[in-house]
């Protein structure tokens, strides 16, 4: 069986956007292109309650067909793993539900199946999750308030790349930051599958400035066109994961 490609944006931010386009709207558009938008909101250590600005985090992910989490910096690493994996599972499950619908001729959710048969579906989902090709664009909010969280962000990215490398399927990742000097977003690392390259990016990850989340999202999604076309990197038309999935939820 030919497995397809899953595309995700992983946005790491600490609060609400304060400039430019509405990120929730942009996120919907991105989902339409078959790219899931996952968002991790990073809390300040001294804040015990969720600041209202972070509700945007959930809204962006919801409209982007992705997963969101709001966490303290010290659990950022594990959260990045969980979010990516869950979003991937969600995308695959969306595809599987569609297949089930074709088989049974009606809207069929995994939970409509008896628990016994569900185990088989789960095995298929897990196999796909392990073998499918994965493209993750990491978009880091480096506005001024993120300053004391950058070390945790670096650790989390470093750790994430390690997990990507453990997968059987191929992967490509790229790293962008926003805002940057004289521009909304800046590409820190073009698409690569080389885990060693990530370290070179870290010195450049410095914080300062405003938070144009919507505009940044809009710009980075174009970058999926630039994923290298290696021989093992299959053509879009072969995707078993329907690219229109994001809208069918």
């Amino acid at each position: 069986m030919n497995t397809g490609t899953i595309r995700q944006i992983l946005l790491i931010t600490d609060g609400c956007s304060n400039q430019g386009e509405d990120p929730v709207q942009v996120s919907t558009m991105i989902a339409d292109k078959g790219v899931a938008v996952n968002v991790i909101g990073v809390l300040d250590d001294d804040k015990s309650e969720e600041p209202t600005g972070l509700s945007e985090v959930n809204e962006i992910a919801q409209s982007g067909g992705g997963i969101s989490r709001i966490v303290y910096a010290d659990v950022l690493s594990e959260t990045v793993q969980t979010v990516t994996r869950q979003a991937m599972t969600q995308t695959i499950q969306g595809f599987v539900s569609k297949e089930l619908k074709e088989i049974f001729g009606k809207e069929t959710d995994e939970t409509d199946l008896p628990p016994e048969e569900r185990g088989e579906v789960q095995r298929v989902v897990e196999d796909l999750g392990e073998t499918v090709d994965l493209q993750v664009l990491i978009l880091v909010d480096t506005s001024a308030s993120m300053q004391n969280k950058m070390e945790a962000v670096k650790d989390a990215i470093d750790d994430f790349i390690l997990s990507l490398q453990a997968r059987t399927g191929n992967h490509y990742y790229s790293i962008f930051q926003f805002p940057a000097k004289n521009q909304v977003v800046k590409e820190l690392l073009p698409w690569t599958n080389d885990g060693a390259k990530v370290a070179k990016v870290f010195p450049k990850l410095a914080a300062g400035g405003i938070t144009p989340t919507g505009a940044a999202l809009k710009q980075v999604v174009r970058s999926f066109q630039n994923v290298p076309n290696s021989a093992e990197w299959r053509d879009d038309s072969d995707d078993i994961i329907d690219s229109s999935y994001g809208t069918s939820q």
């Binding site: 690493s77 392990e130 997990s163 490398q165 453990a166």
Partner: peptide, 23 residues
């Protein structure tokens, strides 16, 4: 065997200590 580890806890994970991969 051979798959990426499904769940782990930071301190007990060799990847965290940079002493191996997560396969």
């Amino acid at each position: 065997f051979g798959r990426s580890i499904r769940e782990y806890t930071t301190w007990y994970d060799r990847g965290y200590w940079k002493l191996g991969d997560r396969r």
